[in-house]
């Protein structure tokens, strides 16, 4: 009995010691990471042009992040896929090169095998989703149909997108299928501003932007919000009903595609190969920023509403699940080809 007690005591001491060692290591790792960043310069690659929403959000967050990390931040704008390619291939593996881009473009271009894509999404380290917004189905004010039922009866509707197979166009393709509309997608608009103007003029009948854009477009009389994608109402447009609230059933065939177009926001990423402790440290830093009232105020001014950053681990899991679904790319491609004016 005594021997047993002795064994138990030894085991207990060992457990406590190993716990202390592990905890100490973790604490040391966190401290080491904090120390590593102090006084250094972080390159933040914005995978879109200066002045874009992505760029403006990065520039809004940058001074707060710099203070929290004790670093200097240098923002560098690069063309969309080229930006993530650069981060993936040439970004330093020490945590000092960050990237920012909307997650549905990162994963969408990867699974669609868009020309020039040189990265594998699941190998990127996602730090946070800094703009987890909702997509809104916007219709032209020139359109005679004002309800979803009337829209379903209409013939030859025109949806607008920017680049072929880009996230705006793919979202339209999926929603045309989900809502059972008689519509085609016209791609080639230079950006969301040009698309907004086309919607306002009645050159296209609907577009599906994120809620901040939708809110401004509606306020300025350029478009009318019809429904919110996903299961949760938008924080920016709380009066707009969601797809399930309107009694729309999403069929099993398009369920994964629908889930894909309703997920994601604007993600901060690190290249592969960055030490785990630094990835975790950066994730924690972004979560700490959630409590910064000044940042909340600045983000609310920039985007219309403050939405807390989503933890990087959640985004990582979501991206991995999308990438693992081998049938999704084929489905999205088939839907785009079905409704696009270009085949």
């Amino acid at each position: 009995m005594d021997r047993m007690i002795k064994h138990m005591a030894v085991i207990g001491v060992l457990v406590v010691l190993s716990g202390l060692i592990m905890g100490g290591r973790a604490a040391l790792g966190a401290d080491a990471s904090e120390e590593f960043f102090r006084g250094k310069t972080v390159d933040w690659i914005v995978a879109l042009e200066a002045g874009s929403t992505t760029d403006l959000i990065a520039r809004t967050i940058a001074p707060f992040l710099a203070k929290e990390l004790n670093v200097k931040i240098k923002i560098e704008n690069r063309k969309t896929d080229e930006g993530i390619n650069y981060l993936y291939n040439q970004g330093t593996k020490d945590g000092l090169t960050l990237g920012i881009k909307d997650s549905d473009s990162i994963i969408g271009n990867d699974i669609a095998k868009a020309p020039g894509v040189q990265y594998e999404t699941e190998k990127l380290n996602f730090i946070a989703d800094v703009y987890p917004s909702t997509k809104i189905f916007l219709i032209s004010p020139k359109l005679p149909y004002k309800t979803l039922d009337a829209l379903k009866k209409a013939k030859g509707l025109r949806a607008g997108g920017t680049s072929a197979k880009g996230s705006l166009a793919v979202t339209c393709a999926v929603m045309i299928e989900v809502l059972g509309l008689d519509a085609k997608i016209i791609t080639g608009f230079k950006g969301s501003k040009e698309l907004t103007l086309a919607t306002a003029r009645g050159e296209v009948d609907f577009m599906i932007p994120r809620d901040t854009t939708a809110m401004r477009n509606e306020k300025d009389g350029y478009a009318v919000s019809l429904l919110a994608l996903g299961n949760k109402r938008s924080a920016v447009l709380p009066n707009v009903p969601t797809v399930p609230e309107l009694g729309i059933k999403v069929s099993k065939e398009v369920a994964t595609a629908y889930k894909f177009v309703t997920s994601g926001g604007l993600t901060v990423v690190l290249p592969p190969g960055v030490p785990e402790a630094r990835v975790e440290h950066l994730r924690k830093v972004f979560q700490r920023l959630n409590n910064n009232l000044e940042l909340q105020k600045a983000m609310a001014k920039m985007t219309g509403v403050w939405l807390p950053f989503v933890p990087g681990q959640d985004v990582q899991q979501e991206m991995a699940a999308i990438k693992a679904d081998k049938a999704l790319a084929t489905k999205l491609d088939a839907l785009f080809k079905k409704y696009s004016v270009v085949r």
């Binding site: 063309k79 969309t80 896929d81 080229e82 390619n85 868009a114 020309p115 020039g116 040189q118 920017t162 680049s163 072929a164 197979k165 791609t187 080639g188 230079k190 270009v342």
Partner: peptide, 17 residues
Amino acid sequence: HSTGVDRFAFGKDFLLG
């Protein structure tokens, strides 16, 4: 932009844009 087809890029990343 409209079709997503690359022209005269010869597989070079910097020419795609």
